[in-house]
Design a protein around this nucleic acid. Structure first.
Lengths: 329, 329
DNA sequence: ACTTAGCACACGAAGATAAGAAGTGCTAAA
DNA sequence: TTTAGCACTTCTTATCTTCGTGTGCTAAGT
């Protein structure tokens, strides 16, 4: 347990280091505090013994340890009030009524990525709560169709269907009508089931070339339901972070952003804004991942910011809180 | 005009340097050629006087100059035959009948980017040759619609429309019918004109709330027509190039890939596969841009590869030729 | 019992120096 | 025309030095 003054010194160290990434000396602290550097040094010794700060070498200033950041986030940091500029930029997106919720979130995160210089990730799985509103199939030529699926929340997905055999246009039309009748209102994730157990038996009776058509549609809709929205923005911001100025480190991190499976694993289960520092996340030991789950109006997903461990926690947490709180309206 | 032997030496220098980015010494060359290093040095002097090669410092080996690469591409290089693996990977995409031409190209370029470790860019402007096949408007709730436009080539675009005033569903339906009747078959780029000069006068007579609806649809379709497909893949490959191992250079280049205007300016007008080395392109003096225009089945666009000036020209040109030649089928 | 001044020590950053390697240009002989 | 040989240049790497920053410890002051 650090004393009041130790905590005060610790706070200065963390916040100084977050501002500019150089070890913080006792001298720098006794300037803001009213005591001698020797006193500060004694306290810093104690803070180091507690595991909150570290030296980069025997006679260097101190930097926060991973446990230190954790302590800072849990016990010291207060979310920082957003600036007028920040609020303004985000409101512009949030108030745009012609955007889907998912687009509002994606665009907001792009703005946040720009404002903070960290990398933003948005994961959405609309398939869980969206219901089919309409299915449309439009013929392009004898063998190609476009299938379009629209959900009750306004999502649109489309896919090209190539039909190998010559199929009568009337047959296609009838099939689509049957599908529409049976499938409208079902959850997107249940679509393939409905196709198999309700549509298939019916079209066997009415449609001559039911097999070809069933397969074509089944494949197309199967793709829809597996679709997960992934959105990564501001990866280049990682280049701006001084801790990642090493070429190999940059390669390592940027390549991780290309790894779809790794990105998808960012997905958050817990409630609230959660902070995963260094080894606490499975992305990279040298970064912090701040994420939060959102469930708004039936929409589910995760938003996350990735930056160096030396992150502006107070600012980022305030911004993420703003997004999750203000989008409901 | 270099002599036969000078050209031979020059070729070795360029191809050695492309393989590994170290200046090429006279000794290295006289190993492959049958003569002494002094002879080679004399010839290299001449090649330098001709401006085809350069020294990095007074007593270094030689590297190709920008003019040298140009000479190599114009007079020496022969497109390299593709390997079986390369052909196989590309055929898999090209033969996939359920993909649009534009998707075939985009996916092929992704493969090429992977195969070569350069960055691939695909620019497409379907709006020029595509005609409207069908317009569909689907209501989501009282104030939100989804507008979907499908072209004769199978492209699908959609946009959310937010209508501020309460509008009768019947009115919307009627409007869509009128639009469909008048607009099907027109070029996508002419859609806004048709809306203004043909649709507007008509709906003024039949639709009560024509103003609100006209504006909503006009804005939605205006976005469609301005839509240009831009696809950049393999930007991280730039990190793998030894010439871009400097952090600042990486930043500079990766940021350029985010600049949509700059990317769009890659657009190629000339026929054939064209090579723009260093200052010859407007992207970056330290890269080569190889691009080609394609016009296949009414589809127009540009594909490009960006890499270091020390590029595997023979391989890249063969790959791009393959794409443009084989996709027609 | 704290706090502070003072001093020895450790380490990093930056520049100087030196040795070695790689490669060229030139010259003179083959 | 080609080649061997040599002087010269530059880069690279390692080592050493110096200087500044910052610590830990100790002893004296409050």
């Amino acid at each position: 347990m650090p004393t009041k003054r130790q905590e005060q010194i610790f706070k200065i160290i963390v916040e100084n280091y977050i501002k500019n990434p150089y070890p913080v000396s006792s001298k720098a602290i006794c300037d803001t505090l009213n005591c001698s550097s020797a006193t500060v040094r004694a306290e810093m010794s104690e803070l180091e013994r507690l595991g909150l700060i570290e030296k980069t070498h025997t006679s260097s200033g101190r930097v926060p340890s991973e446990a230190g950041y954790r302590y800072y986030v849990d016990n010291i940091m207060q979310p920082k009030e957003m600036t007028g500029e920040e609020v303004l930029k985000l409101q512009k997106i949030v108030n745009n009524k012609s955007l889907l919720i998912s687009d509002v979130i994606a665009r907001s995160m792009e703005i946040i990525s720009e404002l903070t210089n960290y990398t933003a990730i948005v994961l959405g799985k609309s398939s869980l709560t969206n219901r089919v509103n309409k299915i449309e199939v439009i013929p392009i030529d004898e063998q190609n169709l476009v299938a379009i699926i629209v959900t009750d929340k306004g999502y649109v997905e489309h896919k090209n269907i190539y039909i190998d055999a010559a199929v009568d246009m009337e047959e296609i039309k009838k099939t689509v009508d049957i599908i529409n009748k049976l499938i409208v209102g079902t959850l997107v994730k249940d679509v393939t089931n409905v196709l198999e157990y309700e549509v298939k038996p019916v079209i066997q009776n009415y449609i001559t070339q039911h097999e070809v058509l069933y397969n074509a549609f089944y494949n197309a809709f199967n793709d829809f339901t597996n679709n997960e929205r992934v959105n990564v923005s501001g990866t280049n911001n990682m280049l701006m972070q001084p801790e990642f100025s090493d070429t190999n480190k940059i390669r390592q991190i940027l390549n991780k952003f290309e790894d779809q499976d790794l990105i998808k694993s960012i997905d958050e289960k817990e409630n609230g804004v959660n902070v995963y520092i260094g080894h606490e996340n499975n992305f990279d030991d040298d970064v912090t991942v701040i994420k939060t789950k959102y469930t708004i109006n039936g929409e589910e997903g995760t938003i996350a910011l990735i930056g160096p461990k030396r992150m502006e926690y107070d600012r980022v947490i305030a911004l993420l809180n703003y997004i999750t709180n203000n989008i409901e309206k």
